[in-house]
Every structure is written in structure tokens, then in C-alpha cells.
Design a binder for these strands. Structure first.
Lengths: 151, 151
DNA sequence: GGCATCCCCATCGACAAGGTAGAGATAACG
DNA sequence: CGTTATCTCTACCTTGTCGATGGGGATGCC
């Protein structure tokens, strides 16, 4: 899977905004709170703004805030805004690949993987993370000790 | 997630070998059957050999075959052999990242994602794909029409 | 006007992805 | 023994992305 630094930073920034409430929060403040390079975060917040996830204002007393309720912003929304589609096969959507002969069922496997990724990322909102209250089925998945083995 | 060409090619090659039975199959034959660049496939098969997934013999009548029963080789095994860990966060294992303050539950989300990826890739063997008989819970995941939407 | 903050553009080094080329080792077979 | 077929190894190439930085411009509050 490889969650990029961009996606990781983006989700954390949005979670900070979810916890901050309605007033504007400075980019520098978010960067310092989450130990993210300030200029890099700026570019990420720009992408989030263009995607309609955050809003912003310049000047003194400026900053960023959420453009819609935190409960309506999923982790998947944030990742797609900064890094594109969640799951791809050879640079394209998995439903576009076609396999010949004996490997034809491989596409079904890729689709199942994407379905399972979505099942987590689309059902966790940034409000859930900010409040520390994840959906039960997500917490259950991570509760299995096997999951924490590096393998 | 981004399944690389390497992983895609590797899984398909191993599925071909699973379907081919016990005799050696030439690299060129696999490449032609699955439309994979021959020299690139060679490098991939080398990695699979070092991982103990395939065995090989040089010279006339040489080729590649599976080093162990096809039912004992999961898709996850193949991907790890050619591309390393299935899921990483910023270049490291998700259990290694640590988040401060309000984002601390984000790690649990990443762990849940990895758990769900593993649930598919570790439970599908190359024998399953070659035979066209995927485990029921995998086929069920891909049966949902929502999954085929690009989003 | 002055200051704080976001906004845009350009660039950078490091690395990986995907693919190619060619020479060398080794096994079967006549 | 020599020839041919095949894997094996090393090296290289091109293109793109990732993570990050710097500088100036636009904008908004006081």
C-alpha cells in the first residue's frame, strides 16, 4: 500500500483542524503541533483547499478551517485529494486491467483488495479520529495481535 | 495501494507455473503467454527464485517451475518477494509510526487497513487463481457492484 | 501604511520504476 | 567435444515521483 508522507501529513492536518473548532488556525501552528515541514504542509493545504475540504483566509488573523463538518470528511476523501486514487494496478484503475487465460481471476483479487481498503478508509471520518472514537469494526480489525506482527 | 507492474507480472508468472504442472517452463513462454517484456520478467523470476518460490535449471530443456505446492504460495508471498512489505507508512512499518496529541488514533486506522489487505492477499493462493476457485469471502467482496465504481 | 499570512512558481537531490543490452555460466544432446 | 538453448549477472538508461526548500507576490486586518 505505501501511505505517502503527503497523505499522512494531510490527514493529521485535517484532524488538527477538526479538533480546533470553527476559528482559523495558522499553517505554522499545525506544522509545529504535528512536526510537519511548514512549507511542505502549505502545499498540501493548498490541495485540500482546491478539493473543497478546507477553506482559508490570508492576512493577519488568517489561517485554515474545515470547509464542511468533520463528520462528513472521511480519511479516503483526504487521501484522494492529495494523492489521487486509493488503489491502482500498474498506474490505472483495477477495473481497467484485463488478463488473458489462466490469470483472468487475478482482477477479482485486486478488486477485493480495493473493496477492503475502502471499507476502512471511507468509514472513518476525521471527527472519529479527533474524538478518539473509531467505528467498532475498525477497532476490532486492529485489535487482533497478529496484525501487529511485522511479517 | 498501487500494485506495481513488478508485482502484477510476478503473480501472473507464478500462476502460469501453477497451471503448467511439474515440468520446467521457459521464461520466454511465460512472457509470450502473458505479454510481459521478456528481459524484465527474467529479473522478476530471479527474485522469486531467491525467495524460494520458484526453482530453475539452465541450458536446453531448462526453465522455471514452482519450488513448493501452488496451494502453499499466497499472493502476499509473491508480492513480498518482489516488492517488499505489503503496506507501509512513510517508508516504514505502520506499527513503527507514533503520533502526538489529537492524531494518536490514526495509527489504529493504518493498522486496520493493513489487516484488511492481508486478509485478502494472504488467503488467496496461486492455485486458487489458476483453478478459478477463489475463497468465497474474496469473491463476495468483489461481487458488490459498488466496488466496480471508479469513485 | 505596516504587518501577518496565505498563495504561487520554480527548483533541487535522491530515488524508484520500467525497461534494455550484452556477456557469461551451465545443462542437454548429437 | 562442440553446439545450442537457456538461465544468470552486471550494468545502464530514461522518465517520473517524492519530499522538501526558497523567494516573491497577493491579500486581508489593524
Amino acid at each position: 500500500m505505501h501511505i505517502s508522507a503527503r497523505s499522512d501529513y494531510a490527514v493529521r492536518a485535517v484532524v488538527v483542524l477538526a479538533a480546533a473548532g470553527s476559528g482559523p488556525t495558522k499553517g505554522e501552528t499545525i506544522a509545529a503541533d504535528q512536526h510537519i515541514p511548514a512549507k511542505f504542509l502549505e502545499a498540501i493545504l493548498g490541495a485540500l483547499r482546491q478539493a473543497g475540504i478546507v477553506a482559508s483566509r490570508r492576512g493577519a488573523e488568517g489561517g485554515y478551517w474545515l470547509a464542511r463538518p468533520a463528520a462528513d470528511i472521511s480519511v479516503a476523501d483526504v487521501i484522494r485529494a492529495v494523492d489521487g486514487p486509493l488503489a491502482e494496478v500498474r498506474g490505472g484503475p483495477p477495473e481497467a486491467v484485463t488478463y488473458g487465460g489462466v490469470a483472468s481471476d487475478l482482477q477479482v483479487v485486486w478488486m477485493a483488495v480495493r473493496a477492503n481498503i475502502r471499507q476502512v478508509l471511507e468509514q472513518v471520518s476525521v471527527a472519529d479520529i479527533a474524538a478518539g472514537e473509531l467505528p467498532p469494526h475498525v477497532r476490532d480489525l486492529a485489535a487482533d495481535p497478529d496484525v501487529w506482527l511485522t511479517r
